[in-house]
Simulated assay, not measured.
Amino acid sequence: MTGIFITFEGPDGAGKTTQINRLAGEIAKLNRKIVFTREPGGTRISDKIRSIILDPEYAEMKNQAEVLLYAASRAQHVHEKIIPALNEGSIVLCDRFIDASVAYQAHGLGISVDTVLMINRFASSGLIPTRTYMLDIPAQESLKRLHKRAGGDEDAGLDRIELRKLEYHRTVREAFLGIAKEQSDRVLLVNANRGEEEIAADILADFYRLLDQQN
């Protein structure tokens, strides 16, 4: 049985983890193998790289280094975990993938999209998600949720990327919307500025349609 690769994307604070957990619970009822993972991270080496990428202590990190570190983490993750799971017929649910690099590093940092895509196609051996759920919220709401999650302190508990200014997060959101529009055959844009139940219902309905197509 061929596996299915599903990714969740969108601005920080959009509720990706909540919706991944909800979908995983539904998939479990189907007696299908599930692998839940995230980027950056997902393997021992990738998690080490994640700790460097997101640590606010490394404020001096250059944009080129950021792009390459994300790609290095992804290369290990894809080849050690994701591809083997797909070959075993698992449904892989991944919190972020290459779309995030295009939004956060290419558009957000002003690096050529072609360059970021070339690096990440090499890192991932050209792996493309079967379906991507793009959870969308305004940038202002994104930062509001992040600060609430951090306990109300404006900066405490936020990682190096989350600490960037509102304009950066607006640029990232617009990039995600552009990806959803340009690749609507793969990406389902989901309004995440609603209740969790409504969001989950939209995702689940699409997932079952996807499953029917795969069978």
Rank of each mutant, 00 (worst) to 15 (best):
R32Q: 13
K33T: 12
K33D: 13
V35N: 10
F36N: 04
F36Y: 15
T43M: 06
D47K: 08
I49N: 02
R50A: 08
S51L: 09
I52T: 10
I52G: 04
Y58G: 02
K62E: 12
Q64M: 12
Y70S: 14
Y70N: 13
A71V: 11
A72T: 14
A72P: 14
A72W: 12
A72L: 11
R74Q: 13
A75I: 04
V78A: 07
V78C: 09
H79R: 11
E80M: 06
I83Y: 03
I83W: 07
P84W: 09
N87S: 11
N87Y: 04
L93V: 09
R96N: 04
R96Q: 11
F97L: 12
F97I: 10
A100Q: 03
S101F: 03
S101L: 03
V102G: 02
A106G: 13
L109V: 00
L109E: 11
G110E: 08
G110V: 07
G110I: 05
V113M: 09
D114F: 02
L117P: 02
L117E: 12
M118Q: 14
N120Y: 08
A123E: 13
S125N: 15
L127I: 12
P129S: 05
R131T: 04
D136I: 01
D136S: 10
P138T: 01
E141F: 00
L143Q: 08
K144C: 04
K144P: 01
R145G: 00
R145K: 03
K148R: 06
E154F: 01
E154L: 03
E154T: 03
D159M: 01
I161W: 00
I161M: 12
E162C: 04
K165E: 15
E167S: 13
E167D: 15
T171K: 15
T171G: 01
R173P: 01
